[in-house]
């Protein structure tokens, strides 16, 4: 009930605001006046962009939550576990080896790379004695750094840095009708995550509890990582990397409501969408008529929040 209120009072107004924010003059007045150009911009650009923001925001927030439950660490999300960077490497591989592939196939390849990168991250975690929970995201960020260095090397050698840059920094300004629909696939993954919500919560209790409660831990792990990889790949392929979203939103919701995912996942999805909308609208207005990519805005807010989380932990531990 309160969720519905949040959607009506926060998400819907933000979405409407997003429809009418931008360089071209699209407003209720121009639309009612029957301005054909305004209608075209609305249908071809603003509506797809707004839908893409909502789908990507909710998808990444949910993906971050699942990773945190499975890794049992608050600081993990696709951009602190090598997942996003691996998806980027996958995209580069497709661009180099099979540039003619349809975009859906590109996304699948990126998803496979994302999955492989995340599995590598988890395998490293199993081998390293972890003295501190902060080691986990540090390892992930380092792994991401290594993978993106490999990507940059090949992109540089083959003169593809520019086209790769477009994938890697989250920017929704190029989202047009016909070029964002992959994100519905990410939405489908989000729905599956909700259906399996209880499994992820039980897995979040740890392997022993999960096994004792009769859960097949490895298959939940596989399902979760599959969802995370698909969502990440879909978002990176259609708009580019949206960093820290999967860190901020799940942590805030967890502080307020806890981690019983059946109850919190809808909130996480709605808040993720709202936050991306806010950041994108801010990026469109701060330096108008130029745009600041949403990835940059989130990078600033997200790194600040990341620091807050770290400092908060330390003051609690002390």
């Amino acid at each position: 009930m309160r969720l519905l209120l949040f959607i009506l009072a926060v998400l819907v107004p933000l979405a409407i605001l997003s429809l009418f924010t931008g360089v071209s003059n699209v407003s209720p007045a121009t639309l009612f006046a029957g301005d054909a150009r305004a209608v075209m911009v609305l249908v071809e650009s603003r509506v797809p962009r707004t839908i893409a923001l909502i789908l990507a925001g909710s998808g990444m927030a949910v993906a971050g939550t699942i990773m945190q439950m499975l890794a049992r660490n608050r600081f993990v999300e696709p951009s602190t576990a090598g997942t996003v960077e691996s998806a980027g490497l996958g995209i580069l591989a497709v661009l180099l080896l099979a540039p003619g592939l349809p975009v859906f196939a590109k996304m699948l390849v990126a998803a496979v790379f994302a999955l492989a990168g995340t599995l590598l991250f988890l395998a490293i975690l199993r081998r390293i004695p972890l003295r501190s929970v902060l080691m986990v995201p540090l390892i992930g960020i380092m792994l991401g750094g290594v993978i993106s260095a490999i990507t940059t090397f090949f992109a540089y050698r083959y003169n593809m840095q520019q086209s790769l840059g477009a994938w890697m920094s989250g920017d929704f300004s190029a989202v047009l009708r016909g070029r964002y629909e992959l994100l519905w696939f990410s939405f489908a993954m989000t729905v599956i995550a909700y259906i399996a919500a209880d499994r992820f919560t039980v897995a979040g209790l740890g392997e022993d509890f999960a096994t004792s409660l009769g859960l097949k831990y490895t298959s939940v792990m596989a399902l979760g990582l599959g969802i995370v990889s698909m969502v990440t790949a879909a978002v990176v392929v259609s708009a580019g990397m949206v960093p820290f979203l999967g860190l901020i939103v799940p942590n805030v919701i967890s502080m307020i409501m806890g981690d019983a995912l059946r109850r919190t996942l809808p909130w996480i999805a709605a808040s993720g969408a709202a936050l991306v909308l806010v950041c994108d609208i801010a990026g469109r207005t701060i330096n108008a008529p130029y745009e600041i990519p949403v990835g940059t805005v989130l990078g600033i807010i997200g790194s600040g929040f990341f620091l807050y989380l770290l400092l908060r932990r330390q003051s609690r531990a002390a």
């Binding site: 439950m69 049992r72 608050r74 979040g204 209790l205 740890g206 022993d208 004792s212 502080m255 806890g258």
Partner: peptide, 12 residues
């Protein structure tokens, strides 16, 4: 079964 030293990070 309940093992000893149960560290649950999930906030439930």
């Amino acid at each position: 079964i309940l093992r000893q030293d149960n560290h649950v990070t999930a906030r439930l």
